[in-house]
Amino acid sequence: MSLALPSQLLLQQDLIEQTLLINPPQDDLPHHAPKTWTVACLSFAVSHNYQQQGFALADICSPPNKTFAHVIIYMSKAKARLGLMLDYARDCLQEDGEIWVVGENKGGIKSLAKQLKGDFDKADKMTSGKHSAIVCASGPQDKKPFDINSYYSDQQNELDIPLQALPGVFSQEKLDKGTAVLLKNLPRKVKGRVLDFGCGAGIIGSYISQHREVEEVELIDDDILAVKSAQKNIEDNKVAYSEAFLSNGFEKIEDRYHWIVSNPPFHQGVKTDYNVTENFLKQAKEHLKLSGKLLIVANEFLNYEVILRESFNGVKQIAKENGFKVLQCEGIKRKPK
């Protein structure tokens, strides 16, 4: 693993030991940053990486219990998250403290100083390089206690399932076309133990729990705000036999399922990364019962069938509409002895 470009720029600066780091990427920064830093991650995998390196962790979903003279925020691909992260930073910033926002030029950092002028007494670009920049803000206005519950928004869907999601969670405001195609063509025979992989706010798992005869539905995601949203929706909608929890891929999965259902994720930071989905497709069979089935939805142009046929004897397209296809896979190929 190497250093992301914004991390390279950050490490060129004079760094303060008592710092809160928010939303760092999956890179080698833990090996270079001061171990006195506290880290608040939005990714379970990244959080685990920092914890293994001995960093103290802060929970981005809970009110801050400590103040800092310095806060560093990494820009998110989901720009809607910046407001939440800035509010969290403001609440734990000491008087006369500074907030640095670091990000790639193509990720929106260029216009950020201008956007922050109304929220801070001072907001200016501090430095740039490595195709990245750092914006420094101080003197926050309208400082208020951080409450994660104030950031939920209602998702519009026609499935008669009230759903709420935190900023940047996949299809936060409206049910995405791919998931809509998947649920419209969900086989009636989906039953038993079901895993919703990359669950987002939990719409797939919630729908299956309410419309199919299942023993149990587990929902997993690496995104901390996604799992928080899914947990809230399971509780609010009284969805039976369901649990949402954090997992880096299949890392926290110990059992096998009758069905794994997914609209697979494929983003890492600012970049699209199909390795995330390809790894999921290759590993899925290891977490299915012998008679288990994998059901996914994907863009028409993505040739996932080639990867899937390495693991399954039967790979069938059961639906195709609105630019998406639904693939059902069964007949797990055994490894040769």
Rank of each mutant, 00 (worst) to 15 (best):
N49H: 12
E310G: 01
H48G: 06
D222K: 12
N49E: 09
M126W: 14
S242A: 14
G168V: 09
K191Y: 02
D121V: 09
T67H: 10
I318K: 14
F197C: 02
V181P: 11
T277A: 15
D222Q: 11
L195G: 14
S291I: 01
A45N: 08
I332R: 01
L195N: 09
D59I: 08
K66Y: 02
V135N: 06
F312K: 04
L93N: 03
G331D: 02
R334V: 00
H31V: 05
R334M: 13
C199A: 08
I234V: 13
E251Y: 15
V39M: 07
R256A: 11
K238T: 13
F68L: 02
D27T: 00
I224T: 13
E310M: 02
K337P: 06
A89L: 04
T272R: 08
A40I: 02
N23C: 11
E95M: 12
D87P: 06
E305C: 03
Q18A: 15
P34E: 14
P162M: 07
A133W: 06
A240V: 13
N279C: 06
F245V: 03
K285P: 01
K238N: 15
E98T: 09
V46L: 09
S76D: 14
G292Y: 07
S111W: 01
N185G: 08
E17L: 07
V135Q: 10
H258R: 11
Q268R: 15
D255R: 15
K144F: 03
Q141E: 10
Q26I: 03
